[in-house]
Amino acid sequence: MKTVDEKTVTMNRRKFLEITGVSTIVGLLGGWGLVELLAPGELEATYLPKKEALVAKRWAMLIDMKKITEQSAKKCITVCHRIHNVPDVGDPKREIKWIWLEHFANAFPGDEHEHMPERIEEERFFVMCNHCDNPPCVRVCPTKATWQRGDGIIMMDQHRCIGCRYCMAACPFGARGFNWGDYRFLIKDRNPEYPTREKGVVEKCNFCAERLAKGRIPACVEESEGAMVFGDLMDSQSELRKIMREQYTIRRKPYLGTNPQVYYMV
């Protein structure tokens, strides 16, 4: 009799665990599903830009290299890195940079040739995240920690990033940097208006999304004294489009099909 009792008890216990387990899952999924069914999308946070925000259908940037000098470029870089709390790591192998300078042959590999004007050969070009319209980094991210906004800006959620660095392998422009260690203590004068990053996450240029939200153009554009133009690619009346109509512009590695949105006039 005793053995039978024990068996019944274990069966009951097992059954009990099964039922609680299954009902928990059903409850969780069902609850979520019900909300999704009755009010689709309501569980996700909704976002509306403030009145003063700058808005566009598709943000893009134009850089007129003829108007940029090494000094003015340095100013743009310094301002960007200061306001975004980009640390000065010092070690080029593990540094973080949002905007920097590269020679033509490095920024546009394959497009250079031996008989180019010396000016272009020696000039250093601004490079940064291209905020591609068809971004491979967004395609590969396994957590949607990097995503594309409606206005085209490629954003990073440093609270969701798991640090797998798949986006860094996918980016054909080397635009992304990783916090290989705790870089916070390297930030000299910290801007309290912008968050710092922990070790173990990826970061890059965000087209100054935080400034656009407050009605200000990107800091590098502001600092460039007219050498950089930021505007709406979908607005045929924008200054950006006006210049594009008249001047020939090039982009980095357009043949890869990522549709980069930083245009250069050389």
Binding site: V140, A145, R160, I162, G163, N179, V202
Partner: peptide, 17 residues
């Protein structure tokens, strides 16, 4: 880089990745 967040892969399933 953030192993403690690995379950984000399940929490935010992303079929394009």
């Amino acid at each position: 880089g953030k192993p403690m967040r690995v379950l984000n892969v399940l929490l935010h399933p992303t079929p394009n990745s």
